[in-house]
């Protein structure tokens, strides 16, 4: 592949501090599921990758973390080139090989149980799925409970993967196995660790 400006440019201007601040936002989001954490970043990825999703990948992925891309991202040579140049992450052939998975089209996310879910002995060996969404508000309201949430936390991201509530309950049922979800609007993220439960069902 030819190295073009589109591949090389648009990374973190200051990788050390940008990675740290993006990580802290994601850590806060993961520790307080459902809260909206702003991602202020100078990362300018090629479309259809959005800035927040790209910043999370830049901050956390590297040559040790196979990265899975959905069809919409994988078909863009610019996206593949940009991620390869800035992270060095190898592409995962299947969702179940992915440490990080990145989806630009929520409607086309494969079944969540198809990603790496870890093992009962090593539940940490599981995918962190990053799904780009249009907005973190304005969608159907979901009520979250679980660790990190004092009482309940309402979220309304849109759009979400198909049959999301049913799929997420299935993930909850596998605990401690499971996957962890980052919903990325262009300027902010919401995290759903596997412990987050939708609705006020019995923990």
């Amino acid at each position: 592949m030819a190295v073009t400006g589109q591949v090389v440019e648009g990374g973190f201007g200051d990788p050390v501090f940008a990675s740290q601040s993006v990580f802290r936002a994601v850590m806060d989001a993961m520790a307080r599921p459902g809260t909206v954490q702003a991602i202020a970043t100078d990362a300018m990825p090629p479309a259809p990758l959005n800035a927040a999703a790209a910043a999370v990948v830049l901050a956390l992925a590297d040559s040790d973390t196979p990265l899975w891309l959905d069809a919409e991202l994988a078909k863009s040579e610019a996206v593949r080139g940009w991620l390869a140049f800035h992270t060095g992450a190898p592409l995962a052939g299947t969702p179940s090989d992915a440490v990080f998975a990145l989806a630009a089209n929520p409607a086309a996310v494969p079944p969540l149980t198809g990603f790496a879910l870890g093992t009962q002995e090593y539940p940490d060996r599981s995918t962190t799925l990053i799904v780009q969404v249009e907005s973190l508000t304005g969608g159907p309201v979901l009520t979250l409970t679980g660790p990190g949430i004092e009482t309940t936390q309402a979220i309304a991201p849109r759009p979400l993967p198909g049959h999301f509530e049913v799929q997420w309950r299935e993930i909850n049922g596998l605990y401690p196995r499971g996957l962890d979800l980052i919903l990325a609007a262009p300027d902010a993220v919401i995290c759903l660790p596997r412990t987050a439960r939708i609705g006020n069902e019995e923990l």
Binding site: P15, M27, M30, A59, L60, T195
Partner: peptide, 25 residues
């Protein structure tokens, strides 16, 4: 910054995120 190299920090940051997602593990 903060002594560790960036690749080490990323590795530790990933471990911290999984730790938060699986409390006590």
């Amino acid at each position: 910054f903060a002594y560790l190299d960036e690749q080490t920090k990323r590795m530790i940051r990933r471990a911290i995120l999984k730790g938060i997602a699986i409390p006590g593990y």
